Lab assay of single mutants.
Amino acid sequence: LNLKQAKEEAIKELVDAGIAEKYIKLIANAKTVEGVWTLKDEILTFTV
């Protein structure tokens, strides 16, 4: 999975969960695949 694909998957998951745009922007700015997954997990843990 490359960075672009990771971001697309994570953003789709966050949108489906009804997460606010400000958190989705954090994913869009992530620099690594690991960073994308870590941010996604943290956002889902603390906002859902």
Rank of each mutant, 00 (worst) to 15 (best):
N2G: 10
N2K: 09
N2C: 09
N2L: 14
L3Q: 01
L3F: 03
L3H: 01
Q5K: 14
Q5L: 11
Q5M: 12
A6S: 05
E8S: 08
E8Q: 11
E8F: 07
E8A: 13
E8L: 11
E9Y: 10
E9Q: 15
E9L: 14
E9N: 07
E9G: 06
A10E: 00
A10D: 00
A10Q: 01
I11P: 00
I11T: 07
I11N: 02
E13D: 08
E13P: 01
E13W: 08
E13G: 05
E13T: 08
E13S: 07
L14D: 00
L14V: 02
V15Q: 14
V15N: 08
V15D: 04
D16Y: 08
D16I: 11
A17V: 05
A17H: 09
G18Q: 05
I19V: 15
I19Q: 02
A20N: 09
A20K: 07
K22I: 11
Y23Q: 02
Y23S: 02
Y23F: 11
Y23K: 02
Y23N: 02
I24F: 09
I24A: 05
I24D: 01
K25V: 12
K25Q: 12
K25W: 08
L26P: 02
I27D: 00
I27S: 00
I27A: 01
N29G: 11
N29D: 12
A30C: 14
A30Q: 08
A30K: 03
K31A: 10
K31R: 08
K31E: 11
K31Q: 13
K31W: 06
K31M: 10
T32G: 02
T32K: 02
T32P: 00
V33H: 03
V33T: 06
E34H: 06
E34L: 08
G35E: 15
G35K: 08
V36N: 01
V36L: 05
T38P: 02
T38N: 12
L39A: 05
L39C: 07
K40M: 14
K40E: 02
D41P: 00
D41F: 10
D41Q: 12
E42M: 15
E42A: 13
E42Y: 15
E42N: 07
I43V: 05
I43A: 06
I43D: 00
I43Q: 00
I43W: 03
I43L: 13
L44E: 03
L44T: 04
T45S: 15
T45H: 14
T45G: 14
F46R: 14
T47R: 10
T47C: 15
T47L: 15
V48P: 11
